[in-house]
């Protein structure tokens, strides 16, 4: 946390998020099919923008400039409108993230119960600050407002699972488990 008198660098809309890796390019048949299925619940295709972003992010982990253009072309929604939705929602990533995203709760109960200590521990263990991805490309650390489990504070969410009543050793276990999982999965 920066002090009032120290400039806090807030970067908004500053990166050109072009990425020519496998996460970009035109929508796949599978993605299109899922979007169409979702779109059938709406009156018109243009309402499905947010869901489309979620669907494509599920496949590509994050939304690059090329991806947003591809969705825009497919749904005939102006790029600026999709960008507006994408930058509004915290869970749509406009920058690359790791395979596992850690959402560390920073709200009042977790703060009382020592989330700052946990954050320091994660930062030291993985050598990443909030918003960064670990060198092995597995973990991204993000801060989040209340996750609604205050009686079990401090909590974090890893991907889509909740982890409650945490301490340093619980976090170490979690990290090891995930590291191992990914090491087994991709033997490279």
């Amino acid at each position: 946390m920066s002090s009032l008198l120290e400039p806090e660098l807030i970067e908004v809309m500053e990166h050109s998020n072009r990425d020519s890796d496998k996460f970009s390019g035109p929508l796949t048949a599978e993605e299109k099919e899922e979007i169409d299925r979702e779109a059938s619940h709406y009156e018109n295709k243009s309402s499905v923008g947010l869901e489309a972003l979620r669907i494509v992010q599920k496949h590509r982990r994050w939304i690059s400039d090329d991806t947003i253009q591809a969705i825009s072309n497919y749904l005939d929604i102006p790029v600026a409108e999709l960008e507006s939705v994408a930058t509004y929602f915290q869970l749509i990533f406009r920058q690359p993230v790791g395979k596992e995203v850690i959402y560390l709760c920073k709200s009042a109960s977790c703060w009382v119960m020592g989330c700052d200590r946990l954050q320091k521990h994660i930062t030291e263990t993985l050598a990443i600050e909030p918003g960064q991805t670990s060198a092995d490309g597995i973990f991204t650390l993000l801060e989040t407002p209340c996750l609604g489990d205050c009686d079990k504070a401090p909590v974090l969410m890893l991907g889509e699972e909740m982890h409650r009543n945490l301490d340093e050793s619980a976090i170490d276990d979690l990290i090891d488990k995930k590291k191992k999982y990914h090491a087994d999965k991709s033997p490279d």
Binding site: V12, M13, A80, E81, S84, T87, Y88
Partner: peptide, 13 residues
């Protein structure tokens, strides 16, 4: 179609 409110909270652009 090419001007929008981007971002949220304290950082609307």
């Amino acid at each position: 179609e090419d001007l929008q409110a981007l971002g949220r909270n304290h950082q609307v652009y």
